[in-house]
Write a protein that binds this DNA or RNA. Structure first.
Lengths: 205, 205
DNA sequence: GTCATCATGTAAGCCGTTACATGATTGC
DNA sequence: GCAATCATGTAACGGCTTACATGATGAC
């Protein structure tokens, strides 16, 4: 989950931990919510696995801006004038490696999509190919259809004596249906190969 | 969370752990999802706290049916012919105590309502009074309004280059608005004092 | 000179899960 | 007799949070 978020963000820009968190929050809003206490260990874990690589910098250098340049190229130049392994202003700027890119695709495609994981995956959908996207969307829709069924069974089985539970389940049913319809639209768009996915209002079928 | 679920269910019927889980699933559908590995420890915890009390029974006795009779009354009679403290058919039938009822109300009113807690609370809304219900509903609505704001900020801040993130955030906005409207209806109903939402009030007859 | 912010980490704890262990009862 | 289900529990681990520790930098 958190590794997916990290890799997804680092695929676009090289950042250090502190920035990463802000970036995540800015880009994904309330959908992401990592704390430093899990972010830094996760970064170290990923570094040990070779999925990201860090460069300890001395100056404010290459951070906020989405870089196009290669890290291993010029950055190696001033890697020499790093101060010590610890302490701030020795920011550890992380970049994704090839291993990391493979891991990202793996994380996107493989694991079971529970409630909260799917949103995160969707946020990084651009990093996997259309067949995988379609497969994920359809699996998600199937899961929601199942959930809908179960909620309806539960609704039917009730003696209807509690209006709050009733209201809760009815709203859950409606929300789930709305989600399913939304997924249906995404699937249709994906199938149509319409690359202007962003178009919401008018436009093409 | 799990304690709330347990106490909420036990307030209506005396059950043993195994039944409790099934009951929970049947009544709340996909909204509840406890595993035995957390259920039994939680029950023991609650028993230690005096929030529930267990009677180890020998026969199939008072389980599935929602009982109206008092546990401490007749049940004490055949408490004597229990076999041993362990092993099935020595089911531990749990009932809520006064301490437990107070704890239930406390759990309903007090804690911060994160995403997933609120649904559970709402499911047991009948066990708290109207002012508390209103307060909870309004707090929840306020939280969702904040979330809505943040999502919209994030939406506005984007350079609009990723259609998937865009779709995700737009859908999140719509879902949140729908939730807010739903809460609005619940609040209105609550304010109107519409008691087709079942008479609960303070004391039991 | 002190306060807010930037920056990186560790430690403890919470709340749940899966997997395992154990055994009784029921149905065939 | 054997499998499925009922019934209760323990152990290990997972993934996250909060709180703590540390220190540099910049603004005033």
């Amino acid at each position: 989950m958190i590794e997916l978020a990290i890799l997804g963000i680092l695929k676009e820009a090289q950042l250090h931990g502190y920035e990463l968190k802000k970036h995540l929050r800015k880009v994904l809003g309330p959908l992401s919510n990592v704390s430093f206490g899990s972010l830094y260990p996760a970064l170290n874990r990923l570094e040990r696995q070779g999925a990201v690589s860090a460069v300890v910098t001395d100056d404010a250098g290459p951070s906020t801006m989405p870089m196009t340049g290669s890290l291993t190229g010029e950055a190696a130049a001033f890697r020499s004038r790093l101060r010590s392994t610890r302490g701030p202003r020795n920011k550890k700027v992380y970049g994704i490696t090839e291993v990391g890119e493979r891991r990202l695709v793996e994380l996107l495609s493989d694991p079971a999509d529970d409630e909260r994981t799917f949103g995160m995956k969707l946020a990084f959908f651009r990093w996997c190919d259309r067949p995988t996207r379609l497969w994920l969307l359809e699996r998600r829709r199937a899961a929601l259809l199942e959930r809908l069924e179960e909620t309806r069974r539960a609704l039917a089985a009730r003696e209807g004596d509690d209006p709050y539970v009733q209201a809760l389940m009815e709203h859950d049913t409606e929300s789930t249906m709305s989600d399913i319809a939304w997924l249906g639209r995404l699937i249709a768009r994906e199938r149509a190969g319409d690359d202007r996915t962003r178009e919401t209002t008018g436009g093409r079928p």
